[in-house]
Amino acid sequence: DWREIAKLAEEALKKQQPVTVNGQTFNDPNEIKKLLETAQKAI
């Protein structure tokens, strides 16, 4: 669910920690931002 992904990505950016989505881990803040943008577009 994109809403859940957006929430996870936002928290990861705030806490500056990696986030795992669908078994894929994102460590890079730039990648997390991209993930968040993608999720927000999909909602």
Rank of each mutant, 00 (worst) to 15 (best):
K7C: 10
K7I: 12
Q40V: 14
F26S: 02
A39E: 01
D1I: 11
G23C: 07
L8V: 09
I43G: 06
Q24H: 10
Q24N: 11
N30V: 13
T20H: 12
E31D: 12
V21G: 01
K15H: 15
I43T: 05
W2Y: 05
G23P: 00
T20P: 01
L8S: 06
D28E: 11
L36D: 01
R3V: 15
K14Y: 13
Q40I: 15
F26I: 12
T38V: 13
E31S: 10
G23Q: 04
F26R: 02
L13P: 01
L35H: 00
T20Y: 11
T20L: 07
G23D: 07
L35V: 04
V19F: 11
L13G: 02
F26W: 08
I32H: 00
E11H: 08
N27M: 14
K41M: 15
Q40L: 15
T38A: 06
K33L: 12
D1R: 11
I5D: 02
K7D: 07
L13Y: 04
I32M: 02
A39V: 06
K14T: 09
I5R: 00
E4W: 08
E37W: 06
T38P: 01
D28T: 14
A39N: 01
A42S: 09
A12C: 03
K41R: 08
E31K: 06
G23N: 05
G23Y: 04
K41I: 13
Q17V: 11
V19C: 10
Q40K: 14
D28W: 15
E10T: 11
W2K: 02
I43D: 05
L35T: 00
L35D: 01
A6K: 09
V21D: 01
T25P: 03
Q17R: 07
A39W: 03
Q40G: 03
D28C: 06
P29S: 09
D1C: 09
L8P: 00
Q17P: 05
A9D: 02
L8Y: 06
D1H: 11
V21F: 10
K41E: 13
N30W: 14
R3K: 15
A42E: 15
K14N: 13
I5W: 04
G23T: 03
I5G: 01
I32C: 02
K41V: 11
K7M: 14
K34W: 09
L8R: 08
Q40M: 14
A42Y: 15
D28P: 05
P29N: 06
I32W: 03
P18R: 03
E37H: 08
R3D: 11
N27F: 14
A12N: 01
N22D: 03
Q40W: 14
N22A: 07
E11A: 07
A12K: 00
L13C: 04
R3L: 13
I32R: 00
Q17W: 11
T20F: 08
E4I: 09
Q17C: 07
V19E: 01
K14E: 11
K34M: 05
I32L: 06
Q24G: 05
I32Y: 00
L36S: 01
K34H: 10
Q17T: 14
